[in-house]
């Protein structure tokens, strides 16, 4: 094989390799990439919204910084998913015991028209005392959901009533407000509790 043939082969191989890489890029990161199914929530430091908690205090994403946090969306007129999520979370918190003393646990309503500050206060009082209930105006609710990359939608039901479809995952954030994972709706305790413990341990390491 002479030098010229070698060069030709070499160029051909390099060309194929480059083309393969290009196709790979195109399909994974380039214009041919599929739309991401569910985006990660923004860090809390990049979110902007203002709400009122169950005691009437003005709160927002910055309120959560400095402690690990758990946040989720729902509404109090929800008969199945929301009480289940809140009681699941209450159970996880009971399991974690004193370790969760400094953790923020926030239930944000996607239905502020019915979930007033008083309604949220009464509702959360039936669950673990660490659980806060936040409500805001319709536009602040939309801003909050956008930051968490959560979605919700009003659905009219029989008899002029309505229900809300909404993201039912629980979002975890570390002390600096970085997104640290989700606990899926109705995830079993043996998976959920270690996930929460991980962000709590990280918080201890950061402070020590």
């Amino acid at each position: 094989m002479n030098r010229r043939t070698l060069l030709t082969y070499g160029a051909a191989i390099a060309g194929v390799a480059a083309l393969t890489l290009f196709i790979g890029w195109w399909r994974v990161d380039g214009p041919g990439a599929p739309e991401p199914v569910a985006q990660r929530p923004l860090p809390l430091t990049q979110m902007e919204f203002q709400m009122t908690d169950q005691d009437g205090a003005t709160v927002g994403p910055e309120t959560l910084l400095g402690n690990p946090s758990m946040a989720f969306f729902g509404f109090t007129y929800c008969p199945d998913v929301c009480p289940t999520t809140l009681s699941d979370i209450s159970g996880w918190l009971d399991d974690l015991g004193d370790d969760v003393a400094d953790m923020n646990v926030v239930f944000i309503t996607v239905d502020p028209e019915r979930d007033t500050e008083a309604a949220m206060a009464e509702y959360v009082s039936y669950f673990h005392p660490a659980i806060q209930g936040w409500s805001g105006t319709l536009s602040e609710t939309a801003r909050a959901a956008a930051g968490f990359r959560a979605s919700y939608e009003k659905v009219v039901t029989e008899g002029d009533d309505y229900t809300m479809n909404h993201t039912a995952s629980v979002f975890l954030f570390d002390v600096e407000g970085q997104f640290a994972g989700t606990v899926d709706y109705h995830e079993s305790r043996e998976f959920a509790v270690p996930k929460i413990r991980r962000i709590l341990t990280r918080a201890e390491e950061d402070t020590s």
Binding site: V155, N165, A168, S169, H186
Partner: peptide, 10 residues
């Protein structure tokens, strides 16, 4: 029902 994006509906 909860879909692949974690959105629950009834």
């Amino acid at each position: 029902k909860t879909d692949a994006n974690g959105v629950s509906s009834m």
